[in-house]
Each structure stands twice: as C-alpha cells, then as structure tokens.
C-alpha cells in the first residue's frame, strides 16, 4: 500500500471536467418505528458522482452508509422511508419514477456489489444462470448463444474460467464468489457500480486481489464507482473523492488528497489517526474511544460531540451546518465557522 500523502491521482484533475452522472440532493431517510418516533438514519445528504469518478463513502458501521446506498436504489428494508430530497441520475429524478421504471434503472444503470457474497448469490441456481438472468432481463434482444458468450466474457474479465459458469455458489471459494458478484454487477454495462464493503469477510490476500481487480476494471471500463468502506487504505488507493459520514450526516466531503493531507473535521482526523499505516512505527495504533450514536437515540447537538476531542459547549446544543471551505471541500464543524467561503 503506497503512502497516501504521495499517491498521485493523475486523472483526478480531469475527473472534475466530466459530466455529472449522479446528483444526490438533501437526501433524508428514516426508519419508521411502530411505537417510537422514527430513527433518522440519513439526514440532508448531498454529493455528486461524475463519469469515471470513484467516490469513497467512509465511516464506522452503523453510520448510515448502507442505508444511503440502498436508498439511492430504492431498495430500503420495509421500515425504511425516504422523507426528503432528490436523486438525479443523468438529470432524471429517480425518486419520482414508478416502481416499474425504477426496476428498469436497477442493474442496467446502477448495479450493486453486496458484502458477503455467500448469501448474496442464490444457492440453488448456477452462477452463469444468475448472471444470465440480469442480461436477459435488461438486454432482451440477445439470443441464448449471445447471452452465453457474454457470461463467459464477464467471468473471464474477473478471472474465472468460463466453464465454471455451470457451478453453484457453494462450489466457489469466498474470493471467487465475490469475483462472480463483480462479474454479475458488470453484466449490463452499468454506468454506476455501488460496491458495499465488497471485501469484508474475506482474508487479507483475497481482499488485495479483489481490490486490484476492481481498480483495473475501473480504469479499463471507465466505471463510476461508489465504494462503501471503513478501510481508509482502500480509499487512498482507489478513490478520487471521499465522503465521510457520521451518524447519518456528512462530516466532511472533499477530494482524496484533501482528505488525507488536510482533513478539517475532527472525525476525519481521528479516523486517519486510527488508520493502521505501515509508515508509522508499530504499536502506535489508536482507535476512536466510544461508539457511534444509536440512530434512534441521537445526541441533541453535533452527533460527534460525545466522542470529539475538540468538543466545546455549543457542539452539545446545536447541529453544526455544513461549511463550504473551497470549491470542492465541505465539512460540518463549528471550528470551521469563520472559514466558510
């Protein structure tokens, strides 16, 4: 893993000139509770994704990353509810579509790689069949030979021999299942791929292989990827920009170099401090004390206040607004109040 501070993102500058694919505005998601008031899982989230951009979505578990991603695809669990905002995909508001129109967008335009591919694949259908299902659904004009050829090409792309397409998920290793899942996500040439912690539950060697594969595929196919992770190493290696979430809200959002070299939000700073870095001497590994807040029991002021090392009185009473620090760098902390442009 290269030192993040010197990592060169040669194409980072050009990314900002590409057209915007996805524009998320003020998105707010609740989990409805039968007896209590709704839990605020995501609040007023804004971000954009350009063609060919890789966005890292970072935060500890339970801070609303997965909810946000499922919300984009309108795949929330039954209790989930999008209460405000808009999601523009190529200028079209996904939240205004009918369910049938949305089914058309899923996988063809936006596909998703789930964590833990063991259960994300149906155990009683072959891998090839499950990939082919997506092709037949969204590219209906292909005959079975063409679908078959495409399945083989996709598997080849992720490094799986084509003749293993007739095998079942339990005959694949964990890493291979994740590769198959990636092949499936690419089945219909989507513009955006959401990778929801695709390497958790895999061992370190396999993780590195999967990440390398995704990096190569991204360059080769010019994919736009939203990479959900709590591993800052992954972010440094793959991403162009980073959105740091805490307790369902944006903590900081900037390009990757800014996040690594000039983080402004105390949470980002703490995350980087806790991030195991091989350039640092061993034994200085830290982690942020405490836990992320429960979404149904949020603190009254800033959601990070109870754990923040730089907390002061106002943080415990008021939610900090989002301050724009420069052209593409926003953060939500009272410490930055005077610097807003």
């Amino acid at each position: 893993m290269s030192d993040p501070s010197v990592s060169s993102h040669t194409h980072a500058a050009s990314v900002n000139d590409r057209p915007v694919l996805l524009d998320v505005r003020n998105l707010s998601i609740d989990y409805v509770n039968k007896d209590a008031s709704p839990a605020q899982a995501v609040r007023e989230l804004d971000f954009t994704l350009r063609a060919g951009e890789v966005l890292g979505l970072v935060g500890e578990s339970g801070c609303g990353k997965s909810t946000l991603m499922l919300g984009l695809m309108r795949l929330l669990p039954p209790a989930g509810r999008i209460v405000d905002g808009a999601v523009y995909f190529q200028g079209r508001d996904l939240l205004a579509l009918s369910e049938a129109e949305m089914e058309d967008v899923r996988w063809k335009n936006i596909s998703i790689i789930f964590q833990g591919a063991m259960n994300a694949l149906n155990p009683v259908r072959t891998i090839g069949d499950q990939i082919g299902e997506a092709i037949r659904l969204h590219m209906p004009r292909q005959d079975s030979a063409a679908v078959d050829a495409r399945i083989r090409r996709l598997l080849d792309l992720v490094g799986i021999a084509g003749n293993r397409k007739d095998q079942y998920p339990h005959q694949y290793s964990g890493g291979m299942r994740q590769r198959a899942m990636i092949a499936m996500a690419l089945a219909c040439d989507p513009q955006i791929v959401i990778a929801d912690e695709p390497t958790t539950a895999l061992d370190v060697m396999i993780q590195a292989q999967i990440l390398e594969l995704m990096g190569n595929l991204q360059k080769e196919l010019g994919l736009s990827i939203i990479f959900v992770t709590h591993d800052l190493g992954v972010v440094a290696e793959l991403c162009d920009s980073v959105l740091v979430m805490y307790g369902g809200v944006t903590a900081e959002y900037a390009d990757v170099d800014t996040i690594y070299n000039a983080p402004r939000h105390p949470y980002t700073q703490e995350l980087l401090r806790a991030f195991p870095d091989i350039t640092r001497p061993a034994g200085k590994l830290t982690s942020i004390p405490g836990y992320p807040p429960r979404l149904d029991d949020l603190p009254p002021g800033c959601r990070f206040a109870p754990r923040c090392p730089q907390v002061f009185g106002r943080c415990r009473q008021e939610m900090p607004p989002i301050y724009r620090l420069d052209d593409k760098h926003v953060a939500s902390c009272f410490l930055l109040e005077g610097e807003s442009v």
Binding site: S28, R74, L76, R81, I82, V83, D84, G85, L95
Partner: peptide, 9 residues
C-alpha cells in the same frame, strides 16, 4: 418507500 413532501422534487 418514497414519502417526501411534494415540494422536495
């Protein structure tokens, strides 16, 4: 699943 105020869009 989508229950935003009419003004949001």
């Amino acid at each position: 699943q989508v229950a935003r105020p009419a003004s949001a869009a």
